[in-house]
Every structure is written in structure tokens, then in C-alpha cells.
Simulated assay, not measured.
Amino acid sequence: MQKQYKVIKPGSSILDLGCAPEQKVKVPSLHCDARVRTVCADVMNLPKCQVKALSPQQLGFSVILSDMCPLVSGITTKDAALSAELGMRALDLAVGGTAILDDIIQRERQSDGSDSSPDDRGVLKRGGHLIIKFLESEDVQVEFANHSLERHHG
């Protein structure tokens, strides 16, 4: 995906959700420096303000990757629904508010951001990239239109 779309550019700040489920991540010192931080937490209960505080200058991330996967039960419909729930949480962390794109777009058009509390706003920078992996089944299919969410400066 990186080769085709080049979403990660030099200087990008990256949030990787689900990089090592329920495990502590060992950051190889040969490839990483003090800018790399790891957090072992339940993403469903992690406040946006704490996530944003991990970003450089607390300004948010330019790329958010969500490779989260639920504990697979083998029941495809259940697994896909749980995957969708994790994906919607990633969307909420990224752009804030509700997980319904129309509500997000409407709120962005109505507000320059001053009406919403800081925890309602997402941690994805303007012009950033969000990539979410979903498990699907025939009964549960996650569909998103290819929207460009432009955030207006006040």
C-alpha cells in the first residue's frame, strides 16, 4: 500500500493501532529513537486527549493505521461485526464525533471547531491519511464512500 499510495512521507507522525494486540511492544533500538512511543491499552477505553498527547507537539498524527482485529471466534458474522466496531472506534479517534460520516461532514461545515470540546475532535491532522482493516462476511459488509473530509480553518 505504501508503494502505491505513498501515505507515509518523511517527517510523518504515525499512530499504529493494533500493532501487537495484548502484548508489550519491543521497539528495536537499532531502527527507532526516542520519538517512538508504545502504549499497551484498550483502544475502546482510551480517551482521545491521551492519544493526542502522544503525538509530536500534541498536534495529532499525519497517518493513522488500524490493523486491529478482534479475538476471532470462528463465527464469521460475529467476527466481522466486532471488526467493524473496532474500525468505527479507529474512525472516531481519527476524525472525532460520531462514526457516521454524514454527521462528521455536517459538523465540520457548521463549525470551525470552537463549538466542540477538544475530546470530540479527532487526532488525525488535516490532510492526513487513515487506513483501517476490516474483517467482512456475507452478512456484515463495511462500506465507506471515498470521501475527502476537508476541515475548514476558522
Results as ranks from 00 to 15, higher is better:
residue 1 M to Y: 08
residue 2 Q to A: 01
residue 3 K to A: 06
residue 3 K to S: 07
residue 5 Y to W: 10
residue 6 K to L: 15
residue 6 K to F: 09
residue 6 K to T: 09
residue 7 V to T: 12
residue 12 S to P: 01
residue 13 S to P: 08
residue 15 L to T: 04
residue 16 D to L: 00
residue 17 L to Q: 00
residue 22 E to W: 10
residue 22 E to N: 12
residue 23 Q to E: 14
residue 25 V to K: 04
residue 26 K to F: 08
residue 27 V to G: 01
residue 27 V to M: 01
residue 28 P to Q: 00
residue 32 C to Q: 03
residue 33 D to I: 06
residue 33 D to C: 12
residue 34 A to F: 11
residue 35 R to T: 15
residue 36 V to M: 02
residue 39 V to Y: 03
residue 41 A to T: 13
residue 41 A to F: 06
residue 42 D to S: 11
residue 47 P to R: 03
residue 48 K to M: 06
residue 48 K to E: 08
residue 48 K to L: 09
residue 49 C to K: 09
residue 49 C to H: 10
residue 49 C to N: 07
residue 51 V to L: 10
residue 52 K to V: 06
residue 52 K to M: 11
residue 55 S to E: 08
residue 60 G to F: 04
residue 61 F to R: 03
residue 63 V to G: 04
residue 67 D to W: 04
residue 67 D to R: 05
residue 70 P to M: 14
residue 71 L to S: 10
residue 71 L to P: 12
residue 71 L to G: 13
residue 77 T to M: 14
residue 78 K to C: 08
residue 81 A to F: 10
residue 81 A to G: 11
residue 82 L to C: 10
residue 82 L to K: 08
residue 83 S to N: 06
residue 84 A to N: 08
residue 85 E to A: 11
residue 87 G to M: 01
residue 87 G to F: 05
residue 89 R to W: 14
residue 90 A to P: 03
residue 90 A to Y: 04
residue 93 L to F: 04
residue 95 V to W: 00
residue 95 V to T: 02
residue 97 G to A: 05
residue 98 T to E: 09
residue 99 A to G: 08
residue 99 A to D: 07
residue 102 D to G: 14
residue 104 I to F: 05
residue 106 Q to K: 14
residue 106 Q to P: 13
residue 106 Q to T: 11
residue 108 E to G: 13
residue 109 R to L: 14
residue 110 Q to C: 13
residue 110 Q to N: 14
residue 111 S to D: 13
residue 111 S to A: 05
residue 112 D to V: 00
residue 118 P to K: 10
residue 119 D to K: 11
residue 119 D to C: 06
residue 120 D to N: 10
residue 123 V to N: 10
residue 123 V to A: 08
residue 123 V to P: 11
residue 123 V to H: 05
residue 124 L to W: 05
residue 124 L to F: 04
residue 126 R to M: 02
residue 127 G to H: 11
residue 130 L to Y: 05
residue 133 K to M: 01
residue 135 L to N: 14
residue 136 E to R: 15
residue 136 E to G: 13
residue 137 S to K: 13
residue 138 E to V: 14
residue 138 E to N: 12
residue 139 D to Y: 11
residue 140 V to G: 11
residue 140 V to Q: 12
residue 142 V to E: 07
residue 143 E to H: 02
residue 144 F to S: 02
residue 145 A to L: 04
residue 145 A to S: 05
residue 146 N to R: 09
residue 147 H to M: 08
residue 147 H to P: 07
residue 147 H to W: 15
residue 148 S to H: 14
residue 150 E to R: 12
residue 150 E to P: 05
residue 151 R to C: 04
residue 152 H to K: 15
residue 153 H to D: 06
